[in-house]
Amino acid sequence: MRMPPVLRAQARACANLDSPFMARLLTGLADRWPAGSALGQLCEGWEDVDLGPSGASLPLRIAGGLHALVLRDEDADLAAVYPPHQVADAALIDTVLAAIERHQAFFADWMKNAPQTNEVRRAAVLIAAAHEIAARHPLPFAVSELGASGGLNLMFDRFALKTPAGRLGPDAPALTLSPEWDGPFPAPAPFTVADRRGVDLNPLDPHDTADALRLSAYLWADQPHRLELTRAAIAAQAAPVDRSDAIDWLAARLEMPRPGQLHLIYHTVAWQYFPAAAQTRGRALIEAAGTRASSDSPLAWLGMEADGGTGAAITLRLWPGDITLTLGRADFHGRWIRWTGL
């Protein structure tokens, strides 16, 4: 069977990201995988070679579907074994397997779409970096987010970052992020966002009921704070996200003249999923645009992406001058930030 190993691998990843419930759920499914069920046959016959988190992410699709049933109040028995309720592992998996059997048609449809989240806590990195950039280039920002999903983090300037080391953001923020912070804290450098737009191959409209459910269902049931932040961000979201190939879209954005503005391109745990050829082309486009940058129209490229180390590397390139900086590291879900700054 193909599924038990990838379920266990995803369970370990969830445990490392502070979700004991997801670890229990996925481990239990691995131990008692219903290979003969409709869902079992669908997964076993999946065309992708990699069914795990680097490929089709079938364990997360299954967990997201189960959570969606709970959030939509469509299965009272399932809701009774989900957080905040505490039940034994055997009772949890008995109930989950029964729900999978009851909702065969739902899962056949749900599994068609890859997991899609919009981790709001990653905006803490955007807030800190924006203040560092603004200290060097005190100009209005035009922001372009690659892999924006529902566009929640396009509103980062309306969020606050609060830690024992300091606070950044508006006085009346849409939400407040409080990651564990280590390192120097950025000095406040006021900035405005004059233009904001994102791109995604499959953008979600957070104001659409079905899309909002998808964004919420992939948040883990024993982490209600993530759901609270997402709902607050949905209420504040007012930025367009275009359906397009990210690099084609970026090429057009880079051709737009922006006198008196800093163009900030950013992506958080998205670039690493672009095909190698797209990364090469995107890098070349950004570097070419960098050669055209000036003090009146600078360019910044900010990334928060996996590099094989703990968490994600936070990198920044600035033009004119083609300055490359490592700003620190961050947890993939924004739980902690190790900041080095500029």
Rank of each mutant, 00 (worst) to 15 (best):
P4S: 13
V6T: 07
A11P: 08
S19M: 10
F21D: 04
M22V: 02
A23H: 15
R24N: 10
L25W: 06
T27M: 08
R32A: 13
G36P: 02
W46F: 15
D48S: 15
P53S: 14
S57E: 07
L60N: 09
A63H: 08
L66G: 04
A68H: 12
L69A: 08
L78T: 03
Y82W: 15
H85T: 06
H85D: 11
A91N: 06
L97N: 00
I100H: 01
I100M: 13
H103T: 04
A105Q: 13
A108I: 09
N113P: 06
E119P: 02
E119A: 13
R122D: 01
A129Y: 03
E132Y: 06
I133Q: 00
A134R: 03
R136M: 11
V143Y: 03
S144Y: 09
S144D: 12
L154A: 05
F156M: 06
R158G: 11
F159K: 01
P164S: 12
P164V: 05
G166W: 10
G169C: 09
G169F: 02
D171V: 13
D171P: 05
A172V: 11
P173K: 11
L175S: 07
L175G: 02
L177G: 03
P179A: 13
G183N: 09
G183K: 10
P190F: 07
T192H: 09
R196I: 04
P203T: 03
P203D: 05
D208N: 13
T209R: 14
A212F: 08
L213M: 15
S216A: 15
A217Q: 10
L219C: 12
D222P: 04
D222L: 12
P224E: 07
P224F: 12
H225S: 14
L229M: 09
I234C: 04
A238R: 14
P240N: 12
V241P: 02
D248E: 15
W249Y: 15
A252Y: 06
L254Y: 08
E255D: 15
G260R: 13
H263Y: 12
Y266V: 00
V269G: 04
W271I: 01
F274K: 05
F274M: 14
R281C: 04
G282F: 04
R283N: 09
R283D: 09
A284I: 01
A284L: 10
L285P: 02
A300W: 07
E305W: 13
A306L: 14
D307P: 05
T310Q: 14
W319G: 00
G321E: 02
T326M: 10
F332Y: 11
W336I: 04
I337K: 06
I337D: 02
L342Y: 12
